[in-house]
Amino acid sequence: MTRANAGTKGVPRADRELQIVRAACEVFGTVGFGRASVAAIAADAGISKPLVYQYFGSKEGLFLASFNYGAETLAAEMERVAADDSVGLERGLRTLDGLFRMLEPQPWLWRLLFDPTAPDDGEVATARTVYTDRITRLAIEGVGELMQLVGDDDPLDASALTAVWMSAVDALIAWWLDHPGVTPAEMTGRCHRLITALSGAAVPADLPS
């Protein structure tokens, strides 16, 4: 996986850092922080291990840069959909579709963000909190629009549905990543069918309203 021109001199620092971060995202997102090797990342980026330490200081520093890159990529895609004219279930499906298409060439980004072996303190923990809050705000906004459409103004209903939605997104993407033969378009269609099935299912008469 040696990158073209990665080992040549004269590459601007910003370009070389991005080259290293992209290689690190794939390694961290594939094997996890705990098993990842700076030497392997350097080899994938086509540069020397000392240069990685020169730019990022430590394995944790490289993971932080990789996490920020992956989280920003995902959050920006969600914000792109949030800025269009879609609302309710359409916005939800467009968000999922955008994530599937964005993750198709780089599926490791999703697992990078939820790596259980990653540092749970310091700057990594702070960055995780910042991006979690950013993504949660988008979910709250989208669910709030949906609740307005159906005439439900109960804040606890909105809170519960936000939790359900965020868990569902994670579960759907995790399922999709475990089925690499499924295309983004096919997965979006499947999500549409699942949402239709859930929203159109009959509710037993003896349940409380």
Rank of each mutant, 00 (worst) to 15 (best):
T30N: 07
T30E: 12
G32F: 10
G32P: 14
F33C: 03
G34A: 07
G34E: 09
A36F: 13
A36T: 12
S37W: 02
S37Y: 04
V38D: 00
V38K: 01
A39E: 15
A39W: 06
A40C: 07
A40N: 09
A43E: 11
D44H: 11
D44E: 13
D44K: 07
A45K: 12
A45C: 10
G46F: 10
S48G: 15
S48Y: 03
P50Q: 09
L51A: 12
V52Q: 01
Y53M: 06
Y53T: 04
Q54A: 11
Q54L: 07
Y55L: 15
Y55C: 12
F56I: 08
G57E: 11
G57A: 10
G57H: 06
S58L: 07
E60N: 08
E60G: 10
L62Q: 06
L62R: 02
F63I: 04
L64M: 07
A65F: 02
N68T: 14
N68R: 15
G70P: 01
G70A: 15
A71W: 02
A71R: 05
A71E: 05
A71Y: 01
E72L: 03
T73D: 00
T73H: 14
L74E: 01
L74A: 08
A75C: 07
A75Q: 06
A76R: 15
E77Q: 14
M78P: 00
M78N: 07
E79T: 10
E79C: 01
R80M: 06
R80D: 10
V81R: 05
A82K: 11
A82D: 13
A82S: 09
A82M: 04
D84R: 05
D85F: 08
D85W: 06
V87R: 06
V87K: 08
V87M: 02
L89A: 14
L89M: 13
L89Q: 09
E90C: 04
R91G: 05
G92E: 15
G92Y: 08
L93W: 09
L93E: 11
L93R: 12
R94C: 05
R94S: 13
T95Q: 09
L96S: 02
D97E: 15
D97T: 09
G98W: 03
L99Y: 09
F100P: 15
R101F: 00
R101A: 13
L103G: 01
E104T: 10
P105E: 03
Q106M: 14
P107V: 03
W108S: 06
W108A: 11
L109Y: 02
R111L: 10
R111P: 05
R111I: 02
R111D: 14
L112T: 02
L113I: 05
F114P: 02
F114K: 06
D115Q: 08
D115H: 04
D115L: 03
P116Q: 04
P116M: 03
P119I: 10
D120K: 14
D121Q: 15
G122W: 11
E123S: 11
E123R: 08
V124K: 02
A125E: 13
A125G: 08
A125K: 15
T126R: 15
T126Q: 14
A127V: 04
R128W: 03
Y131D: 06
Y131Q: 10
T132R: 14
T132W: 12
T132P: 00
